[in-house]
Write a protein that binds this DNA or RNA. Structure first.
Lengths: 248, 248
DNA sequence: CCGGCATAAAATTTCGAAATTTTTATCTCG
DNA sequence: CGAGATAAAAATTTCGAAATTTTATGCCGG
């Protein structure tokens, strides 16, 4: 299978040794942005990044360009890169777009998916349900494994939609939303019963009840959206929470 | 307004002097790919490109990375870049995706567009109708001005959809399709009356008749698709027409 | 005291060569 | 004669410094 058109996390071989430096830095930096270690709006100076990731100019710039393609950083000629800003307006647009695209994708997937597709969904759900949301019991801590499985579950739902373009777009929007979820989670996350939500979506999907599946999926998105807004009621154009330390 | 998320031609300042070299090369190379001067499937060696565009390694690589984000070139670690391949399968996927996304975008746009939006469509259509499809009367020759206006017309239709993400995706898919249109046009293009098609779409749109507008727009896409298939009936995975000269 | 112009500092962008990695060609052995 | 290992060639990737451009500073004039 070819690589997704809109690059996404997909196969994580970050920090690895086989790939190029540029790819490794891209992966590491991507995670730093998604988890909020590099806060929205922050300027990304070349010196700072070179020191932080221990590489030269070229792979750094290459990683930045790829991140710009994902919409995680923005670039202005002769004026460098910065982490994409977040705002309630942008979140709203994101939610809207996500609902439109995922609805189309899910309906297509349900219409065309085969038995292997069904099985992969059951499997993805099972794995996700066994993984704790937070890496720590005490307070919320980013759990890469859960994020990976969650991403895979949602990706699996629409995997049979028949368009790598559409699947890639959904992926990209999913990653964008992840950034907001992390922001909200940092404060306080009396997480609703996500497992049940996912289970219901799975069941409706493999039962080929497209109307119900879409309804549940969209509600799932809207609930997440509401939760984010509750905890981050008034997002400004830039980062709404503390500047990051320069720690490596 | 912010830059489109999925970068697109939009503001053409190519070959210019104000921007960076990387941007200039990106623009020139983009056009070379869209017009088929750099044929699908071709390997893009660094030496060749550096000579062709007269720049060093860095801006070249930067341009390539941005083109990869647009899906116009593909990259494999340690194995360089090549122009994305074309195939009938890919064209089919492209058409499908385009219909889904443009339908959503157009309906939203019709629902929310204001008077200024209406006027911009009328204006875009007028300009497009005055421009010849081909730069030469004798045989088809790529006419950048027509392409620009055509792109703007279609972009204008969905401009009020309320999602820069969705608009950007439509842009990207439009550019991808352009590549196929150029391939077909190189052979023989007894072009159907495109002006009327565009006029009908415009009229239905500003009359807020969303069902009709969508029907016409989708038919427009399907007709273009059929025309491409007629002229390029059996596209293989790689470039179906002659290798390009290394001429600068 | 404020505003604009020259100057200095900082940051981005670009170059060209060095270092890796892949690809091709050659040679040896079964 | 073919397969596999070895060596040469070619191509991609990376580095670090030079060149441009932007941003900040200081100075002079109104």
């Amino acid at each position: 299978m070819e690589k997704p058109i809109v690059s996404a996390k997909s196969d994580i071989k970050a920090g690895g040794t086989g790939a190029t430096l540029a790819t490794s830095v891209y992966d590491r930096m991507r995670e730093d942005i998604l988890t909020g270690k590099l806060p929205p709006g922050d300027k990304l100076r070349a010196d700072f990044l070179r020191a932080r990731y221990g590489v030269g100019t070229s792979p750094m710039r290459e990683a930045l360009n790829r991140l710009a393609a994902d919409g995680l950083v923005v670039h202005e000629d002769q004026r460098g890169f910065r982490v994409s800003a977040v705002s309630t307006a942008e979140l709203e647009e994101l939610l809207k777009t996500r609902c439109w695209l995922e609805e189309t994708a899910l309906r297509q997937s349900i219409a065309h998916g085969d038995a292997a597709w069904e099985e992969s969904i059951v499997l993805s759900f099972h794995r996700l349900s066994r993984q704790p949301r937070s890496a720590s019991d005490a307070s919320y801590t980013f759990n890469p494994e859960w994020e990976k499985l969650h991403h895979e579950f949602h990706r699996g739902l629409i995997a049979a939609c028949g368009s790598r373009w559409l699947a890639g777009y959904c992926d990209q929007l999913n990653d964008q939303t992840l950034r907001y979820r992390q922001i909200a989670a940092q404060f306080d996350d009396p997480r609703r019963n996500e497992v049940d939500e996912h289970r219901e979506i799975m069941e409706a999907t493999i039962a080929r009840d497209d109307d119900l599946a879409v309804k549940l999926l969209i509600r799932h998105f809207e609930d997440t959206d509401a939760l984010i807004r509750k905890h981050v009621p008034d997002m400004r154009d830039s980062a709404p929470f503390g500047k990051i330390s320069a720690a490596v």
